[in-house]
């Protein structure tokens, strides 16, 4: 064999560059995206807020202060108290836990369902694909909020039920995205090579196709999290979400249904409304940054 010589010359030809993986490249591009970095920082602060709520909160979020209810911000209650005399700041901090668990929980469930359905449809094709995609179409044509309202009222409004309902209804978009990516990746020669090497279908799908479809899933999951937080807030606002006394940004807003509160007691609804906007905005900024970072066409 003469290959030793060949290998030597090849060594010579190449300048061995730094090892830069795909993820590292994405991370570098994400980091250059100022809005995305700002969003990430704000989001991490909210996560910290939720995790450290028991230590940060000045008092028990459900404790009723008998002497001061509907009181304006003061030294005792930095953000004032609500109509039954609970500390608004403490409730705000604890409510972050609800929003984040709805966001993460629902998205985790529906990304799993959507990825599985999309991958099976895209990989096997034929009638399996047809059937699964028609089911997806049906799910997509539901009037989303109404179905959620009905399901939550049937199952009973609770944090777990909201997560499950949002998770079970949210997958169609992910399924479509994953199916599209799988169809595309399936045509790549490295997947054909995997078939030729006699790998099993699950190995090909999970180890060779899906890791390459990861980027669009992650982007969708980020935006989905913002959506889930908004939906939970809307449900709670309508009284079908997280039930009092558990604090949620949505049900704290409920008090703004009264005109007096709306006009003359802004501390009772402004902070929670602000938190919803900030949380959703920061997550969406992160999503924008991710989308640009994984898009091969948007080099900056």
């Amino acid at each position: 064999m003469n290959t030793a010589k060949v290998s030597e010359s090849i060594h010579f030809q190449q300048k061995l560059g730094e090892e830069t993986g795909y993820l590292k490249m994405i991370w570098q591009r994400f980091f250059k995206h100022h809005m995305a970095v700002t969003g990430t920082v704000v989001f991490l602060l909210i996560v910290l807020m939720a995790v450290l709520a028991p230590w940060l909160a000045p008092m028990d979020p459900n404790r009723v202060d008998p002497v001061s209810f509907q009181s304006a911000p003061s030294a005792a209650h930095i953000l004032g108290t609500d109509d039954v005399g609970r500390d608004v700041l403490s409730r705000l901090l604890y409510a972050a836990r609800v929003s984040l668990s709805v966001g993460l929980g629902a998205v985790a469930i529906y990304v799993m369902i959507g990825t599985l359905i999309g991958a099976v449809a895209g990989f096997f094709g034929g009638w399996i694909d047809g059937l699964l995609m028609r089911i997806t179409d049906i799910f997509m044509s539901f009037p989303y909020l109404m179905v959620i309202l009905v399901l939550v009222s049937v199952m009973g409004p609770s944090l777990t039920n909201i997560i499950v309902v949002l998770g079970v209804l949210g997958w169609p978009q992910v399924a479509r995205i994953v199916r599209g990516s799988v169809l595309q990746i399936k045509q790549m020669d490295y997947v054909k090579a995997a078939v030729a090497l006699g790998y099993s279908a699950p190995r090909i799908v999970f180890s060779h196709i899906l890791p390459n479809a990861f980027a669009p899933i992650l982007v969708n999951a980020t935006f989905g999290m913002a959506n889930a937080i908004i939906t939970e807030s809307s449900l709670s606002f309508l009284g079908m979400g997280v039930q009092p006394p558990t604090a949620s940004w949505g049900n704290m807003l409920t008090q703004a249904q009264s005109l007096t509160v709306l006009s003359s007691q802004p501390w009772m609804w402004l902070p929670s409304g602000f938190m919803i906007v900030i949380a959703v905005l920061s997550i969406n900024f992160m999503g924008d940054g991710l989308r640009d970072a994984v898009d091969p066409k948007s080099f900056r």
Binding site: Y22, M188, D189, Y190, K192, A193, A194, A196, L197, G198, H208, P211, N212
Partner: peptide, 18 residues
């Protein structure tokens, strides 16, 4: 499959980038 293999034309799409 062990007995028969294939070498592809396009060396860029034939290796899993991950």
């Amino acid at each position: 499959r062990k007995e028969m293999q294939i070498i592809f034309q396009d060396p860029y799409s034939s290796l899993n980038p991950r």
